[in-house]
Design a binder for these strands. Structure first.
Lengths: 208, 208
DNA sequence: ACCTGAACACCGTTCAAGT
DNA sequence: ACCTGAACACCGTTCAAGT
């Protein structure tokens, strides 16, 4: 058998398409079955559940992260990795939402965490703090990509923040910032960079 | 009219109960109606949608944050606020999930963001960076409480990480940490503190 | 002003039955 | 080994009709 599980691959392929079109919330097995010209029940022959499909998607997207760690301080390596993760998540719409919705379980996800732990392994801190450091780091990256997706979706309708005049008196600073149009500059690369540096500098002054 | 909207209050009260019992995912209008001895459709007379109920919950829980800013540096104030937010979120099960699921919209939520912005208002940075700083800060706190909830729910079944032997070779560091039982120490207060200090120290070295 | 009943258009998952 | 049809037990929301 040269080719194995062709339909399984097709289901995953169609799932990526459906996810891009519908988002995580509106992704349904019935829509997926229509896309594949299959019955819903036959999808269940290939995958045990909807979550099993999602776990496979998570496995794949994280497998697409490719990185060559040329830099040698752990700070530089975390930066490089951060960019690489961010890039892959952006190339697969709603994959950040997927990572947020389910705890790490896919083999590639666990391997990624292990690789990140290796980067800070030599530092003088307990395993708890190291693990937690990587959690905070990953949460930051995933959250950034999630917010970015949200901003992209709502860039047309202008009430990113309730447009009411109430805002002017109850949250004057926020109101002012909104008037200045800062929400158009939020998802930019320099923001991502700033946050990543905040974390890494923070790790530096607290981990050792 | 001395008392206004008694049923509206009852619906909110029952919603808190239902949220605690079922979590966000399993919260349904039909279950809520049963709890209230009402029809589903009559709930819709009081609230336009399920989200409208959730927005009211968000409004309430954030309104419960009470804080007396005795400290005077912005770093100390962000710390104090962080503890206060964390405490309220923990007192209302699944409220962190609620905040994650919906963008800031409830009046009290916007007011909170404004108060936090005020704390760093005097710093020498652009409004974009200040707003983003507060976003990162809030995301951290909310995420911590979410993860804590998840840990609490899964403390019984031991496969917090896939228990497979595969882990030993593909993610050896993670495997080792798991053996050491670090996952029992993750949700603790010193972890929250560490992360909050990481952020604040990071802000300090990047914002100015 | 407030509530009911019934319906619409969906869900994820299971399972006997087919080929 | 793979797929179908039908069913089960749910969803959020709407709306004419009641009091």
């Amino acid at each position: 058998m040269v080719q194995k599980d062709m339909t399984k691959d097709k289901i995953i392929e169609a799932s990526w398409e459906l996810l891009q079109q519908e988002g995580l919330e509106s992704f349904s097995m019935r829509k997926l079955s229509k896309k594949l010209n299959l019955t819903v029940s036959s999808i269940y022959w290939h995958f045990a559940s909807k979550e099993a499909i999602f776990q496979e998607l998570i496995h794949q997207v994280i497998g697409e992260i490719n990185i060559s760690l040329t830099q040698n301080t752990w700070q530089e390596q975390l930066l490089e990795y951060g960019y690489a993760i961010s890039e892959v998540l952006r190339s697969r719409p709603y994959s950040a939402q997927l990572l947020m919705a389910y705890p790490p379980k896919a083999p590639n996800y666990l391997k990624l965490i292990d690789n990140l732990l290796k980067i800070i392994e030599h530092l003088d801190a307990s395993h708890e703090y190291k693990f937690y450091t990587i959690s905070v780091y990953l949460n930051y990256i995933i959250n950034f990509e999630m917010d970015l997706m949200y901003l992209k979706l709502n860039s047309d309708k202008e009430d990113l923040l309730s447009t009411a005049d109430r805002l002017k008196t109850s949250a004057p600073l926020l109101h002012q910032m909104k008037q200045e149009g800062i929400f158009n500059k939020l998802g930019h690369r320099n923001m991502f960079d700033y946050g990543l540096h905040v974390l890494i500098n923070g790790f530096e002054s607290n981990l050792t």
